[in-house]
Structures are given as structure tokens and as C-alpha cells.
Write a protein that binds this DNA or RNA. Structure first.
Lengths: 318, 318
DNA sequence: ATAATTTATGTAAGTACTTACCTATATTTA
DNA sequence: TAAATATAGGTAAGTACTTACATAAATTAT
């Protein structure tokens, strides 16, 4: 009955599991009453019990005490009155209120049920007590926890913490110019050297890229700019992916991939038809990324290239 | 929200409490999806998750795996198909079956939801882990326990054990004559002595009580006769409560009270109008019981009494 | 090969709650 | 004292399941 893969989902299926267990207990409870020839619905229990112990109560008082909506109590008491287990009298002074209490018939039924309730409580208590994890105590703790700090708040907090840990792609702002320059110089100096054309672009990206109809994106992680990538406009159809740089400090965060996907998306938004790039054979990880992004190797006469280090040419149709 | 008197009911209100917690989680789950602008109902989760992981499944396969009825899965998948998150294809060979799997739209939604699911699982896990009683483990244990030995069986067993421990009132049978005699002689010899009239009645209760329109009841405890009480008929209206005797071996089981209540009930059934008894001032506990049962002290001329030991007379109207 | 049974699925109605909306009073505020 | 607000309670419809019953197709027994 309860042995199946929903259990593997753990906390995720907590709601479904609680419902399944609750439904089971209601069903079996009903069967137990029937077996003992008692005309009583398990759903009546909280209201009936409260009236048995608490004397006279109003609808809202009951609802507050058992932690359900007044509508639920209204419906339950309607049934209890119909089956003559509860009597409902108008409040003496407050005409909105009703005074609910057990009828003589209700008291009679109570006498018959009380020993059975003791049996139910004993059986469940026996079972729960034997286990290493106490269900009643666990429910109490979880209820208390949710009372002080709700489900949505808890999950939202975790989500926001995750987003903090995640790489965000953000738009170009002139104040990021120094990051654009330094991130690119970092890797250029590691593998090659900074060419004159690089210097020109890196020193004034606004003039050489943005104002020419291109764009620049940055990757932010934990409040710091950790990567960048630019889109250089050739003409309305053709753009170059260029100046992609990620600091060596972040590893395994897929920063390059996210920048690449974002810049391609940006190119599409700009109605680009074709995206090209130039690179170098020794930059194996970069070339692998370009392939994954959808770029294909193509031929080019590198004598016309803006970069001396270029010996690989790739393009992709958008 | 969760702080109220339902908690005091303990195991008895377990079903209601599980439902309340389950409802809360569904509501909050729904709110979290909405907050993240995701069109997804918490009730879809188990089916959707299974299809996300398990590829292609039929309605019954899903129902078995998540432990709900096939009807529930049928309804859920209908909705999922309606919202185009799942595609349903006829089985190639078995014309009864449907093959369900995520649609492209479903896969797309899955990508958006997976990180949120991780957040939910992490938040709940965080919360539960901090407590001394682990809710998930407790649920698992209770489910396992119910799987091997159902709720109704457990409670019925406890109930039967209680009934075994309880005093039962049973009707007269001639084979109980020796108990009737010995139980009465036991107490008569302790406080007084056995009178001639006692001997006559105790040696032949069938003739002197039953056949004269009276009755005798016995109390049984753990398979043994531990008490008795008789109803002697004077005339159609008047009866005497007599020969009440309880063995000293049973204490605190309310045997006398149960016998008394039963014999009064029996007298009512026989359309008696008045019940009388004779006793002795030194039998304080007995007199207290008679008062509790509703007998009132009255005057009598004891020179006409059948018993030498009688110096107290009581009666009650029925 | 036919009949009986089992399996796969769907639909309708029931259950134990909810939310949303309504009216009728009572209480507080201006 | 009138207007605004709060409280008490009801009804309708929704939710996430259930059971009961239905049909159609597949499998097993005779």
C-alpha cells in the first residue's frame, strides 16, 4: 500500500504523502466505527470531542480551537445537528452567534465511543512509541517551525541564497569598462600578447562596440564581475562574437557557457543572421565550448584578419 | 495557525492533523509556484516527476508507483494533457493502454522547475534535520507499520485485549449455581453466618428465584465468575435486590456497580415498579453503593424480615 | 473456440477540507 | 448618531483524493 517510488521523492512529495496517510486513517477509522456498529464519521471527531469536553461553544470558537476554517465547522455542525447528536441554540444576547452543545443522544453516543477512542489512542501510541522517530512529536515540531517561519518564506530564502551563489548575466554599463579591459588582458597576456587592435577596443568599448551597434555582456558572481563577452556588428546580418574572457578564479560554474548562450540570444534579438568568431588552435577548451554553442568550423583567409593570433574561424547561422 | 487544542487530542486527531499539514503544504507550494511565475499545480507533481524521470509510463504504472488510485492518475493526466505538458499516445499492441510522456513544453517547464524543486527539498530538509524527531523517517516507519499490520487490526486487537480485562455481566445458567452459592457463603461467613433461609435459596436458586419470576446475573472477569446478584419477585410491581456478592479477589473493577446497574436495568425490563433491599449498618461500602445506584433509606418493621441480620431497609422507584 | 476472468482506463459521485463571497449583527470611530 | 469596520455564520464552488461502477480489450480456463 505505502511501498512505492513516491517515498524516494523524499521531502518533495511530503504533501502527497501526508494526504495519503491521512486518507488511510480516515478510511480505517470509519471502518472501525462501522465494525463496532457506531454511526459516527471520523471527520466529526474534532468538533464532537471539543463539545464533549468543552460544554457550549460557538462555530468560530470551535474553528479556532481545532485550527480549521469556520466554514468547515459550519458544515460539520450542520450534519451533527441533522443526526441529532448536537443541539444548536441561539445566543441569548448576540443574535449572530449560535450555542452548540451535545444533545442527550450525543452524550449517549459519547459513552459508547469513549472506550473505543481509548483503544484507538492506545493502538496508535503503542505503534508510534516503538519507533525511533516519534511521528506525533515530529508533526508538532514541523507545525511549530511553520508557525514561526512559513513554508514559502523558508523556500524563498533558500532560493535567494542559491541565486546569490549563481552566475548572473548583466548588461553593459560604462562603469564596467575596466573589467572588460582587465579580464581580456588577463588571458591575452597568458597565451599571446595584447595587439594594437585589442588595445584600441579594450580602452574604449563604448566607441568601438556599443556605438557601432554591438553589445557587451558581463557575468556576475557573488557581486563580482567574473567574465565578459562582446558582439561586434559587421552589418545588419553579420556579427562577430569577440572578447570573451572569464577570470581563472571561477571554475566549473559554466560562466563561459552562460555568457555564450546569452550573447547568442542577444544576437537573435538584434535580428542577426550570422555569427562568426576567430580563435586559435591552442585554445582547446574555448573551441570545445564554441562547438557546443553551435558554431561550425569554416575556411577563412587570415591575411585579412584583424588579429595576428587568429588561425581558426567559426560561424553559425541564427 | 497550528497552535490550538487539536494538538492536545494527540493520536486521536492524527488524521485531521496530517490533513491540515498536507493542505498547508499544497497551498504554500501553489503560492511558491505562482511567485515564480510557473503554471504548475502541486497535485501534478508526483505524476509529472515520474514521467520526467521514468520516460514513458501507463496510467496504472504511475498509480502503482505513487500509491494512489488509477482514477486519480487518470484525472491528473487529463489535466496535464489539457495543459499540453504531457502527450498521450495509444500503445502499439495493447489497445487498452496509453503511453504517457512529457511533451516538449513539459520538458521546458521541467528545466525551469528543477532548481525550484531543489530549493523546496533543501528548505524542508533543512527544517526537518534540525529537529529531534525526523518527520520523514517517522512517516516512513508508520507507513511500514501499517503495511505489515493495518490500523483496524491494531485497534481491534487493543479493544479485544481490553474486553478480556473487563468485567462482563452474563445471564443465569444452572451450571453457575455453585458460584451463586459459594460467592454468597464467602461473604456471609465473613460478617454474619449462613441462615436457614439463605441455605434454602442458595441450594436451589432455580426453584426459589428463577421459577418464581425473578432473575440472577453473574459477573465474569478473565473467564471466571467473580460476582452475582439476584432479583426476587414479590409481585408484578415489587422486586427485591438480594444475594449480591463479589469475591474479594477483584478490587477496583466496579464489579458491584456493574452488577447493580445491570440488575436495575433487568428489573425495568421486567416492568417492575419498585425495587427494595435489606442490609446491615456495618456494611458501609455496600450501603454507599446502594445509595449511588439510587436507593433511598426507608422504614421497615424488621420483625417481619426473612433475615435475622437485616437492620437497614432501602427502596427505589423505577 | 467459447466462456470466464483479469487488466486498463474512464466517469460520476462522495469526502474533508479550502477560498471566495454573501448577509446579518455588533462594535468602534469620527 | 451615522458611517466605517469587525465579527459570526452561511453557501457555492474548488481541490485532491477516494469508491463504485462502467466499458473495452487481453488473457486464461475449459
Amino acid at each position: 500500500m505505502f511501498q512505492n517510488t513516491i517515498n524516494e521523492l523524499g521531502e518533495l512529495a511530503l504533501g502527497s504523502r501526508l494526504k495519503r496517510l491521512s486518507d488511510y486513517i480516515y478510511r480505517e477509522g470509519k471502518e472501525f466505527y462501522q465494525l463496532n456498529e457506531i454511526n459516527f464519521e471520523p471527520r466529526w471527531f474534532p468538533v464532537f470531542y471539543l463539545l464533549a469536553k468543552g460544554g457550549t461553544l460557538s462555530v468560530v470558537e470551535i474553528a479556532d480551537r481545532i485550527g480549521v476554517s469556520h466554514a468547515a465547522v459550519s458544515q460539520t455542525t450542520k450534519e451533527l445537528v441533522k443526526y441529532q447528536l448536537v443541539v444548536s441554540l441561539d445566543h441569548k444576547t448576540d443574535k449572530r452567534k449560535r450555542e452548540l452543545r451535545l444533545s442527550d443522544q450525543g452524550r449517549e453516543l459519547l459513552m459508547k465511543m469513549e472506550p473505543l477512542w481509548n483503544d484507538i489512542a492506545a493502538a496508535l501510541n503503542n505503534m508510534i512509541r516503538q519507533h525511533t522517530h516519534h511521528l506525533m512529536a515530529a508533526i508538532q515540531e514541523v507545525e511549530n517551525a511553520f508557525d514561526s517561519y512559513g513554508f514559502v518564506d523558508r523556500v524563498s530564502k533558500i532560493k535567494n541564497e542559491r541565486l546569490q551563489r549563481e552566475v548572473k548575466i548583466i548588461d553593459y554599463k560604462p562603469e564596467y569598462d575596466s573589467y572588460f579591459k582587465n579580464l581580456n588582458i588577463e588571458w591575452l597576456e597568458k597565451y599571446f600578447h595584447v595587439e594594437e587592435y585589442d588595445k584600441k577596443v579594450l580602452n574604449n568599448p563604448l566607441e568601438h562596440i556599443i556605438n557601432k551597434g554591438g553589445d557587451i555582456l558581463f557575468a556576475e558572481f557573488e557581486g563580482e564581475i567574473v567574465g565578459t563577452c562582446a558582439l561586434l556588428k559587421y552589418n545588419d546580418d553579420d556579427y562577430e562574437l569577440t572578447k570573451m574572457a572569464v577570470t581563472g578564479k571561477v571554475q566549473g560554474k559554466q560562466v563561459g557557457k552562460k555568457l555564450g548562450l546569452s550573447i547568442i540570444e542577444r544576437a537573435r534579438q538584434m535580428k542577426a543572421k550570422k555569427l562568426v568568431l576567430e580563435s586559435n588552435k591552442i585554445l582547446i577548451p574555448a573551441l570545445t565550448l564554441y562547438e557546443r554553442l553551435g558554431f561550425k568550423y569554416a575556411y577563412k583567409d587570415f591575411s585579412t584578419s584583424a588579429y595576428q593570433r587568429a588561425n581558426v574561424y567559426m560561424e553559425m547561422a541564427l
